[in-house]
Design a protein around this nucleic acid. Structure first.
Lengths: 205, 205, 205, 205
DNA sequence: ATCTAATCGAGACGGTACGTCGAGTCTTCCC
DNA sequence: GGGAAGACTCGACGTACCGTCTCGATTAGAT
């Protein structure tokens, strides 16, 4: 029996899922997350905004965390990949600038909410890692690795990634200072001095 | 009528606050946070562990976040100040090592929980800042400032503090990698190269 | 154009109703009523037992009560008519005995369920009356009326019917005592004394 | 240790139950039962009418059936006992008249609802028996037993009770005819002929 | 031998109520 | 007047069933 026979059996049975409702639910949950913050996101609120029923939500997602994770995944799908200008410093700078803009937009609250949820729910943590963190790090890892010979010998790429991204997340979550473009540049400069092979003769652009 | 008479009248009427109950409540809330994570900290759980009643909790604190913040403040009071060995790199290293140990101990879950709570509750965020983050940064700021002439000119101390502490918080919260002593050293080296006035002749310890 | 042509056009187009599915649905609803009691009769349960789909049920019946009423009607169709032995007392006795057996069989739960449903749904009540109660009473009314001259003058037939049948239903529904053949006989004797024209010379059977 | 010591310990702890809320809940459930019929009685509706919360309902009763049973018990508590005029026929007549009036009042729907619920829920059935049916039967049993020598020998009291009460319940539940005072009298006459020791020379009063 | 149209199964949909749980408030008795 | 006990309102949780709806597949009579 060919694979498509099984597929046929599984695919064509019953009323198909309402993709529109799915989209409305995901959109509504993002909206709610942005407007109300994480604990303000109620399944009932999502259902009402989306014009859907709670039953539909629970049919497809085991709990609201899963809804929001999928919403995050969707909204993240169209994020730009790591840039490739031919200049490593420029690549990193552009990437950080984009990330700063993302965090300052409405998506910032989403990140705060998801990371908060992850602290007490390992499922959310694991999903956030695999959906967002790990793919972004992989892009960045490859983007930087292209210029490995420009980097100081013995530099650990994982540590570089942490030192670049962490300060932005840190300010987002702790809130002692804003996440600005300028701050990203300062971090960039500081880290660059630590990873670049040449004695850091950096000039501000 | 002397002032103390008024005081007596105001203070001394009725049974004084039960300091033992207060201590038990704070301890219980820390315990709950460590064992059960943030959403496991229900007022009922605290009351039961502490052998107190919910009314007592709400008489003295406006909500459970306030309880946990005060618990954090208490537990944080005895933290070591920024070291002073006469060598900046060594001071920072020791400080980071201590912090790594703190985060890996049961207190780590407390930090995760408080930061998570801060994301959706500005009161918690503000309190966490003023109770923990700001004082620690102030200590560190002064500790580093003592060696300002050893630092590269134009270095922004705030950025230095962020770049030093952020990676540890980042790994704690995101959880993609453990918060190890070695990691702290690596961050230390990387940042040192960016802030030290001398061309970084660092040797691995 | 003859009438049957229209009928043909209306009836004959498309796939005809699946009479087998209809039978399975009715049977399944009786089964469910017998096994699970009235609130156990969910449309989903009927559909599953019958190997049918909910849509099929709702295509042919407006709600589940209608299904059960039709099931009752079907199952009731083959009930015996009022007996005719030439002796009124004997006729009534046989009739009551049959009814006792019916109530003690699985059909008993069906009656309980239908009467329960009728209490809150007038449609069910009306249907139960017209499908079961009224026809049975009419049979009994005629059966008794044949012997009208043996009855005491002024006896109201409706009251007689009520006094004969009511105790059986009463015990069925209230459940304080079993519905036995002996009980039917006792009721029979008691009522007979009240309706017979001759001074009741009844001997226990 | 005296009993009152235990009582003291059990009685005096914590906020006492809000008897007013209890009364409002019971009243609301009776109202709802009378107005909406049994399946219309929603815990949420009761809570809203009573100005109480669902949690309060579920704290004291395991499910809505229990609420309604207790409501019935309360409302039934003040029912008149079996009369005692010195004349058995008169006693029974008065009793039946009272019962007819009860069934035709708003309480009638309550009985219908409870009996309906009892058909599918044995707990309700058992409770209805012990709260209402059995006590009433016991009163009637004693009331009739006082005149045992006026009754025909060999008459089974249980059967008498069934034959007297059943027709009223029957008409209430089946609804093929109204439950009137006249009907009660007719049943009374018919049954009297079957139980009275004297050849029934009954004259209408 | 198609074409057409009503029916079938499966199962997703918007609702409504369920019974549970925690937050934060209130009430009573005891010390 | 403080404290323990615990009842209170409120609102969200996740589940179950209702009656409706869309699918693809099936099955007759009409062409």
């Amino acid at each position: 029996m060919p694979v498509e026979a099984i597929d046929d059996e599984l695919r064509g049975r019953g009323r198909p899922r309402d993709e529109d409702a799915r989209a409305r639910i995901l959109e509504a949950s993002l909206e709610a997350l942005e407007e109300l913050g994480y604990p303000g996101v109620t399944c009932e609120a999502i259902a009402e905004r989306a014009g859907a029923s709670k039953a539909t939500i629970y049919r497809w997602w085991p709990h609201k965390e899963a809804v929001m994770l999928e919403a995050l995944r969707e909204s993240v799908a169209q994020e730009l990949p790591f840039p490739d200008t031919g200049n490593l410093r420029e690549d990193i700078r552009i990437q950080l600038h984009n990330f700063v803009k993302l965090l300052n937009g409405p998506r910032g609250r989403v990140f705060k909410g998801m990371i908060a949820a992850a602290q007490s729910d390992p499922k959310v943590g694991a999903a956030f890692l695999s959906i967002w963190v790990m793919p972004r790090r992989e892009f960045a890892r490859r983007g930087i690795d292209r210029y490995r010979k420009e980097l100081r010998r013995g530099v650990d790429l994982e540590v570089v990634l942490d030192s670049i991204y962490a300060p932005l997340y840190y300010r987002l979550l702790i809130g002692h200072a804003p996440v600005t473009i300028k701050f990203a540049d300062q971090i960039m400069e500081l880290v660059w001095a630590g990873i670049s092979a040449t004695t850091s003769q950096h000039t501000k652009p």
